[in-house]
Simulated assay, not measured.
Amino acid sequence: MNKAFVKESDNDDDDDLAPEAVSLPAGTKNYITVDGYKRLRAELAHLMTEERPSVVQVVSWAASNGDRSENGDYLYGKKRLREIDRRMRFLTKRLELAEVVDPATQPNRDQVFFGATVVYSDQAGEEFRVTIVGVDEAEPLEGRISWISPVARALLKAREGDTVTLKTPAGKNELDVLEVIYPEAAS
């Protein structure tokens, strides 16, 4: 549709980054695991082949009903299309910039690097299990933390048995690395 008929700016740069997007430190690459890359590609494919065509169909139907100014299906559909398009642009850019890292091929399996799953305990003796992943695949509540997070940065390059220092606003915490785990390479 011609932009003359919709209330959208010509400057699409302002909405290319999703609100939940984490910016990368200057000069770093957008590291992502193989599984994370597959998940983002699957989300992009779902948006392109299923969700967007479905919403376009609803908007077309709603537009054919006449007055669009008070047509909820039309107005919501147009808003949803903008959200889908924004997410598709974001995913496309992130996938283009992605540096896929397969943690299963890590040669130094006794040391914490990108893609490692680390079991550690804090000063209170509570154990945690985290996997260090890319910023686009981090889910802290599921134990997947970004490699640029403070915990991951403290753990990187540590080995089993090491004690690392985590600096927080509340002070310094000592973390004991109990186990470093990498996925097995596919045969």
Rank of each mutant, 00 (worst) to 15 (best):
V6A: 10
E8M: 07
D15Q: 04
D15L: 06
L17D: 15
P19L: 12
E20I: 07
A21W: 05
V22H: 11
P25K: 08
Y31S: 10
V34K: 05
V34Y: 01
D35H: 13
Y37C: 07
Y37A: 11
R39C: 10
L40N: 00
H46C: 12
L47S: 03
E51S: 03
P53E: 09
V56W: 01
S60V: 06
S60A: 11
S60G: 12
W61D: 14
W61R: 15
A62P: 04
D67Y: 08
S69C: 09
N71C: 06
L75G: 10
L75Q: 14
Y76M: 10
K78Q: 15
R80N: 03
L81I: 13
R86F: 04
R89Q: 01
R89G: 01
F90W: 08
F90P: 00
L91Y: 04
K93N: 11
L97R: 08
E99R: 10
Q106T: 15
P107Y: 01
N108W: 01
R109F: 02
R109V: 07
R109E: 05
Q111E: 13
Q111P: 00
Q111G: 06
F114E: 05
F114A: 04
A116L: 06
V118Q: 01
Y120W: 12
S121W: 09
D122R: 07
D122S: 11
V130G: 03
E139F: 14
P140V: 04
L141C: 07
I145M: 02
S146Q: 06
R153L: 12
A154T: 02
K157S: 12
E160P: 02
G161T: 03
L166S: 09
T168L: 13
G171T: 03
E174N: 13
L175N: 08
D176C: 10
V177A: 04
V180S: 00
V180Q: 00
V180F: 01
Y182L: 00
A185N: 01
S187D: 12
S187V: 09
S187Q: 11
